[in-house]
Design a protein around this nucleic acid. Structure first.
Length: 635
DNA sequence: ATAGGGTTAG
């Protein structure tokens, strides 16, 4: 579908620079629908609604003057509206509909009908919402802008359009009608408050969710260049987000996907350019964190040149710059969501040091902005650097984790910064990549509440877990444990390996190689089947690393081998258990396609090597800047 | 009455 849509998008985007062509397209859309007589009737309808408003005004005046003879005879629309709302809130939407249909026309008006349309939408009765809209028109009541806005808003709540072809047709019809309405209003008063881009924004949302990209672009291109029917900040957000959504729908790394993502990114750059131009020409558009967020998301999956544009935007609007670069004054407030996406962009673009740099900058400048999600981007960056061969990242990751724990206690938003299982897992990945057993063990202590020394040589008694308040004793799952075991193996120290095997034994190997355990305090499947696949991967990793580990510790059995100690016999039994798992699960052994992203080896990739080469210069610049402008961001 | 995560990676 996307491939089909593409050539047309190219055609449309070319059209953008030729306004006269666009104007023609717009006028065609209006007149192609029917004879001009229907336009005349709509015009009369617009007159009617004007008269209605006058009548309402008159009624209000009459009521104030105590002239309520009329009021006794008929129910005022706003009173009726109140009753209908009450019924709807009691879950009696259908009763409300019947009541309205049976009311005398005097009591009905466009607002009352819109009230019911809104309620139908809120209860996901989308077809009913549209039926009410047409029923209203059938009774000679003309929809106004708010009626269209209400109807379209109801349609935006549809989550799955794939099975709702009829409803989508109705949405198209409603949009067409709204365009006809705006053309009429515009010809009478170009500044009428009845002209608003709101219903169109909602329609664009519908088209985006329904996957009708081409139609979406057409609608966008048909908008005015300025005035009330030109794109607003929300219009731009919707457009940019929809490019990002398209890129995210594309999976894989094949050339088709890359090309589609590159096209989405260049569409995003085009829309962004158009918006900036309008801002420069004085349009009333404030570029805020949501728009910047949308464009960052849309560019993140593009080519490196697109990512560079994203970093430029971040520098120019958010004021985040690389070390050595000066950032202009920020005009966009850095929200949590925007920050999260900026850090995500860094990692997607393999700018891992930049990710860490910005997080550290904000740790000093505005620590309460940070939540554990932000920190996890930086921790993932440490792991990626470790995967590219840097061996100094583990202690830095651990240090960041300790800062989080400190913030949880001392800061005002403990819950947000508190490390979760995924936080600890990312630290453990960095520790394993750095072959750093001490940091691994410390991380294990921090997450679980156990003491490492209880597992060391010569320790006596059962290891004790220090009970903490709820949610603060977090036990490793298969992913975390696979890192712990692989870190011990990588350290090459028998002492560390023994300590590690005792940890696994304490929990029981089954915890890590059998499907999800529901015991309290233990990790549950985070979400759905993706996680199951990863669990299987990590179960295999844990088992095979453990076999290797125990092979180092317990000699293979030969005729002369000395008698094994009780503990060694236990370990040998664990090894058998692990081997047995690997043997019986052989047919489930994860292939390369099942490799979780954290496990990927960026070594060898050109971008990865470039990032590593960069590292030395990077730290120098970073250091120099720190010494020359100490804490310059603090007030 | 319009945008606004928590499954952004594979």
């Amino acid at each position: 579908m996307i491939r089909n849509a593409r050539p047309a998008i190219v055609a449309v985007t070319r059209r953008i620079s030729a306004p006269q062509v666009r104007a023609r397209a717009a006028s065609t859309a209006v007149t192609s629908d029917g004879p001009s007589s229907s336009n005349l009737s709509v015009l009369r309808e617009a007159e009617t609604s004007y008269k209605e408003r006058q009548q309402r005004k008159h009624d209000r005046v009459a009521a104030v003057n105590g002239d309520n003879k009329q009021e006794k005879r008929l129910l005022k629309p706003h009173v009726l509206s109140g009753r209908l709302t009450k019924l709807c809130e009691e879950g009696k939407l259908d009763e409300a509909v019947e009541m309205l249909k049976n009311m005398p026309l005097d009591a009905q008006n466009v607002s009352v009908w819109s009230t019911l349309v809104a309620h139908a939408g809120r209860q996901n009765r989308f077809q009913l919402a549209y039926q009410l809209h047409t029923e209203m028109k059938r009774r000679g009541i003309k929809p106004d802008m708010r009626a269209y806005a209400t109807l379209m808003a109801a349609f935006t709540k549809v989550t799955d359009w794939s099975t709702r072809g009829k409803l989508l047709e109705n949405a198209h019809k409603a949009y067409k009608n709204y365009v006809e309405y705006t053309d009429l209003v515009k010809s009478r008063n170009p500044n009428s408050p009845e002209l608003s881009v709101i219903p169109i924004n909602a329609y664009l949302t519908v088209l985006s969710k329904a996957g009708q990209w081409q139609q979406m672009f057409d609608v966008y291109n048909a908008l005015d260049d300025d005035g009330p029917l030109s794109p607003g900040p929300i219009t731009y957000t919707i457009m940019l987000k929809s490019f990002a959504a398209r890129s995210q729908q594309q999976r894989g790394d094949d050339p088709d996907t890359q090309a589609a993502r590159a096209r989405n990114a260049s569409d995003a750059r085009l829309v962004w350019r158009q918006m900036v131009k309008r801002v420069e020409n004085g349009a009333d558009i404030v570029i805020d964190s949501q728009i910047v967020d949308a464009v960052v998301q849309a560019l993140a999956h593009g080519r490196p040149a697109d990512q560079v544009v994203a970093f430029d935007i971040i520098r120019d609007y958010v004021g985040l710059a690389k070390p050595g670069e000066t950032a202009p004054h920020a005009s966009v407030e850095l929200s949590r969501v925007l920050l999260s996406d900026i850090l995500w962009l860094c990692n997607v673009a393999k700018k891992h040091r930049l990710c860490i740099h910005w997080v550290q900058q904000i740790m000093e400048r505005d620590p309460t902005l940070l939540d554990h999600g932000h920190m996890e981007h930086a921790l993932a960056a440490f792991g990626q650097l470790g995967a590219m061969g840097s061996l100094t990242e583990a202690p830095r990751a651990l240090q960041m984790l300790e800062w989080m724990l400190e913030q949880e206690v001392t800061g005002p938003h403990g819950q947000q910064i508190r490390p979760t299982l995924s936080t600890y897992t990312l630290v453990l990945v960095a520790c394993w990549r750095g072959k750093d057993w001490d940091s691994t063990l410390r991380t294990f202590e921090l997450m679980s509440g156990y003491r490492g020394e209880d597992f060391a040589d010569g320790a006596t008694g059962t290891p004790q877990m220090k009970q903490r308040s709820k949610g603060r004793n977090i036990m490793p799952d298969a992913a975390a444990m696979s890192c712990i075991v692989r870190a011990a193996l990588a350290s090459g120290e028998p002492e560390d390996m023994r300590q590690c095997v005792r940890i696994v034994r304490h929990f029981g190997l089954q915890k890590f190689i059998s499907p999800a355990d529901d015991a309290d305090g233990w990790a549950r499947p985070r979400n759905a089947q993706q996680f199951k696949k990863d669990t299987n991967f990590y179960a295999h990793k844990t088992a095979s690393a453990l076999v290797e580990l125990i092979d180092e510790l317990v000699p293979k059995k030969t005729d002369e081998s000395p008698r094994l100690s009780a503990e060694e016999r236990e370990w040998a039994a664990m090894r058998s258990e692990a081997r047995n798992f690997l043997k019986t699960q052989k047919h489930h052994r994860p292939g390369p396609e099942a490799t979780p992203a954290l496990e990927e080896h960026p070594l060898g990739s050109e971008a990865g090597l470039a990032a590593t080469d960069d590292a030395v210069a990077w730290e120098r610049i970073s250091r120099e800047q720190k010494t020359s402008k100490p804490r310059s961001y603090l007030h």
